[in-house]
Design a protein around this nucleic acid. Structure first.
Lengths: 106, 106
DNA sequence: AATGTTATATCATAAAGTGATATAACATTT
DNA sequence: AAATGTTATATCACTTTATGATATAACATT
């Protein structure tokens, strides 16, 4: 199993929303609110990615689920994967910021 | 012109590499080195994205270019776009870290 | 019972990313 | 100076990822 594959932004947002149990629609709303509308995940993307995350066992269905609201939550593997990707993203940002600092002297 | 569209990871890496003048191949190597191989941008992705960035005027060809090495650098618009995306990415990471903190108490 | 909101789901298509491959200039060796 | 290796750009055909539009239905409110 490939634990440390880079996550796409959409996947990252969804996984970051599922550190605690949440149903799909709530994930969608949370991302939109948190990013003040800068990043919107529509239903097509959401449910496609949820299906993929279940398959890879990065999330599981939570017992609070009923037939109407399907609640998901990160697994340990999912959590580890998210942590690894956070680290990667921090390096990304550092890289960009260092470059911008250097470049903006002139 | 849409200044603040979310940048994909690949686009972000390439733009972050071009805060100072660099030719394509060097961008490729830099990303691989900086991420210790976690993120690899192959030639197909690289030149596809460079073409797109030129078109959107996020980068321009630099005068140091010769027929062999084509050197690119961020424009002001490109720089602003990168800065905006850094901000978005910081919010992303905060969101994920807050969630992980809460979740890891139990 | 009609209307609006919440919620999940899929289809067809578009956008993004990539492995393989091609081409060629330059550098180094023999 | 021919051969080999490295640097460097480029594109094709294909896969993966993302999404707009749409469908369905339960629940809430009027």
């Amino acid at each position: 199993m490939k634990l440390f594959e880079p996550l796409t932004d959409s996947v990252f947002y969804i996984m970051a929303s599922l550190t605690e149990p949440r149903h799909g629609y709530a994930v969608m709303s949370l991302v939109e609110e948190t990013t003040k509308g800068a990043f919107v995940i529509g239903p097509a993307s959401l449910y496609t990615i949820i299906k993929k995350l279940l398959k890879e066992q990065f999330i599981v269905m939570h017992d609070e689920s009923d037939s109407r609201r399907k609640v998901y939550v990160l697994t340990d593997v999912g959590r580890q994967t998210l942590e690894a990707d956070i680290a990667r993203r921090k390096v990304m940002i550092e890289m960009a910021e260092k470059g911008l600092e250097r470049g903006s002297i002139g």
